[in-house]
Design a binder for these strands. Structure first.
Lengths: 113, 113
DNA sequence: TTGATAGTACGATGAGTATCGTACCATAAG
DNA sequence: CTTATGGTACGATACTCATCGTACTATCAA
């Protein structure tokens, strides 16, 4: 299989190991408003969702860019399923590596007053 | 007093109000390794410390840039004291605005195993 | 007043990045 | 095979940013 074929079949999708996930990279990935919104919506779902199910008025190319940024930082996991691509949060990995970070970012743990 | 004088005396140091602190801006400010290290060291101190007390092998200009980025994001507070400038974390504001975020970033809440 | 210390302003530079459009591929349905 | 759907690759553009060097200022001490 050629490199081009590997790219096109998505076999090369890079996901960092849990231990390789860098805090700075995660924070950078989350520091873009669009990506933050992607993560917020993914957090609402128990099921993985296809990339195209989100739309903020940017083009498909741009969405691909944001998904790749999140994936390479270790925030999301992606897998091809037929004609689309499923995406979900790497909750377990993030919680293990940076406990409380994702919850804090999602605001799912408001202060008990 | 002229604008130049105001700049030079540091009177114009901008600090966002607590309510104005943006999550994306904070995450961006923290996504740089140098700034992350600044925050980690500030977190170790109960007393404010002068800017110059940290050194990572970058120039003073670059340090000024990083401090300004942190300050304008609402992560730190700065105040002139004589010839130097004291810097400290805005812990209360960050904890109130994004509960758990700073602790998660600082890793001060490791998973109980 | 003279010097030393701590920090800023400004301009430049090189790298990164958010965005787009166009062309393309892969899979599934007809 | 043809077409539609969902997504990627690539190049371009404009913007941001991390870094530096130089010149400058403010404050304090001698």
């Amino acid at each position: 299989m050629t490199v081009v074929q590997a790219k096109l079949t998505g076999m090369e999708l890079h996901h960092p190991e849990r231990s390789e996930i860098s805090l700075a990279a995660v924070l950078h990935a989350l520091s873009d408003p669009h990506r933050l919104e992607i993560v917020r919506r993914l957090a609402e779902d128990s099921e993985p969702r296809p990339c195209g199910s989100l739309n903020f008025g940017v083009t498909k190319s741009t969405m691909t860019h944001h998904y790749r940024t999140l994936r390479e930082a270790g925030v999301i996991r992606q897998e091809r399923r037929g004609t689309s691509k499923l995406t979900w949060l790497r909750r377990d990995d993030l919680d293990a590596r940076f406990p409380g970070l994702l919850d804090a970012v999602l605001g799912s743990k408001p202060v008990p007053t």
